[in-house]
C-alpha cells in the first residue's frame, strides 16, 4: 500500500513534467529540450521566493507558474522563432533549445553555486495521515491534487477554449490554420508558455517532495519524461498522465520485487516492451489527431 502511494506521488510529478513536454510536441511537432532546465530553474526560483522573500508556499507556487510561462515565451522567441521556416527547423530547434537550456543552468550556477538547495524546513505544514497502514504527508496529497487540477484545467483548455481550438487546428495543419485566419505565432507562444508553466510547477513540487534541488535535477528527469511521452503516445495528454503514473509505479515495484540496483533497468525495460507491442504508445492514435 505504501509503495503504491509512493509510486503514485512520484508518478504524478513525472506526468506533470511530461505533459508539458508532450504539449509542445503534439501541437508544434517540436521537441523542446530546454524543458528540463525550466524544471530546475523553477525549483531554485521557488526556494528563493520562500526562503529569501519569505513568501508562503501558496503565493510562491503561482509565481513559479508565471515565471515558467515567461521562460516558455523566452524559449519560443530565442530558440525556436528565429529558426522557423528553415528546412531543418526541427533539428535546429532541438539543438538550439539544448543550448538555451544549458544557458539557463549556467546562469543558475552563477547565481546559486553548485550546492544542493532546499525549501526551508518549516515552509510546509508537517501533517501526516495514515491511510490503510501507509504514511502520507499533507504535502504529498497537495502535490497530487495540484497535479491533477493542472492537468484537468489543461485538458479543458485544449478541448473547450478558443486558444485550444487554435492549438488543435495548428496540430492538424499549420498552413490551413493560417489560411483560416488563426494567429499561428501567438498560439505557438502560448503553447510554449503553458508547457513551461507546467514544467515549472513540476520542478518546484519535485524539490519540495524530495527536499532537495540540484542543478542536475532536470537532466535526471529528462529521460524519464521522454520515456513517458513515448509510452503514452507522443502528443497525447492522457497518455502522458498514464505513462507518468506507470513509470512511477514500475520504479517503485522494481525496488520491491526485483532489487534496488535494477530499478532503472526494470522500469525502462518495461517501457521498451510497451514500445515493441504498441509502437504508437498506449494512447497514441496513430497521427489521426494529436492533443
Amino acid at each position: 500500500m505504501q509503495q503504491l502511494l509512493n509510486g503514485i506521488f512520484i508518478g504524478s510529478i513525472y506526468a506533470l513534467f511530461a505533459i508539458g513536454f508532450t504539449l509542445v510536441f503534439g501541437i508544434l511537432d517540436q521537441l523542446n529540450l530546454a524543458h528540463p532546465a525550466v524544471f530546475a530553474v523553477a525549483a531554485f526560483v521557488g526556494i528563493e521566493l520562500v526562503e529569501v522573500a519569505g513568501l508562503s508556499i501558496w503565493v510562491a507556487l503561482p509565481i513559479v507558474l508565471l515565471v515558467g510561462a515567461l521562460l516558455g515565451v523566452l524559449i519560443e522567441w530565442v530558440a525556436f522563432r528565429p529558426l522557423r521556416g528553415r528546412p531543418d527547423a526541427h533539428f535546429a530547434g532541438l539543438i538550439s533549445s539544448i543550448a538555451l537550456g544549458g544557458i539557463f543552468i549556467a546562469l543558475l550556477q552563477a547565481r546559486y553555486g553548485p550546492d544542493t538547495r532546499r525549501f526551508p524546513a518549516d515552509s510546509f505544514p508537517d501533517e501526516r495521515y495514515t491511510i490503510a497502514g501507509a504514511q502520507v504527508t499533507l504535502l504529498q496529497v497537495a502535490i497530487l491534487v495540484i497535479s491533477i487540477v493542472l492537468m484537468v484545467v489543461l485538458t479543458l483548455l485544449v478541448r473547450r477554449s478558443r486558444l485550444g481550438r487554435g492549438m488543435r487546428a495548428i496540430a492538424e495543419n499549420p498552413t490551413a490554420a493560417t489560411v483560416l485566419g488563426i494567429n499561428v505565432s501567438r498560439i505557438r507562444t502560448s503553447t510554449f508558455a503553458l508547457s513551461s508553466a507546467l514544467g515549472a510547477v513540476a520542478g518546484a513540487l519535485f524539490a519540495m517532495n524530495v527536499n532537495s534541488a540540484q542543478l542536475g535535477m532536470g537532466s535526471a528527469i529528462e529521460l524519464k519524461g521522454l520515456a513517458v511521452i513515448i509510452v503514452g503516445g507522443m502528443g497525447s495528454l492522457s497518455g502522458a498522465l498514464v505513462g507518468g503514473l506507470a513509470l512511477g509505479l514500475a520504479e517503485v515495484f522494481a525496488v520491491q520485487y526485483v532489487g534496488s540496483s535494477w530499478r532503472d533497468m526494470v522500469a525502462f525495460g518495461l517501457l521498451f516492451l510497451i514500445l515493441l507491442v504498441r509502437p504508437q504508445g498506449l494512447f497514441g492514435a496513430r497521427r489521426v489527431r494529436e492533443v
Binding site: Q2, Q3, N6, G7, F9, I10, N209, V210, N211, S212, Q214, G216, M217, A220, E251, V252, V255, Q256, S260, S261, R263, D264
Partner: peptide, 19 residues
C-alpha cells in the same frame, strides 16, 4: 542491502522496503 544512485533524491520506495 538496498542500493541507490548518487543522483537519486526520492528514497521512499527503498525506505518503505526497509521499514
Amino acid at each position: 542491502t538496498l542500493s541507490f544512485s548518487k543522483a537519486d533524491t526520492d528514497f521512499r520506495a527503498l525506505l518503505t522496503e526497509a521499514k
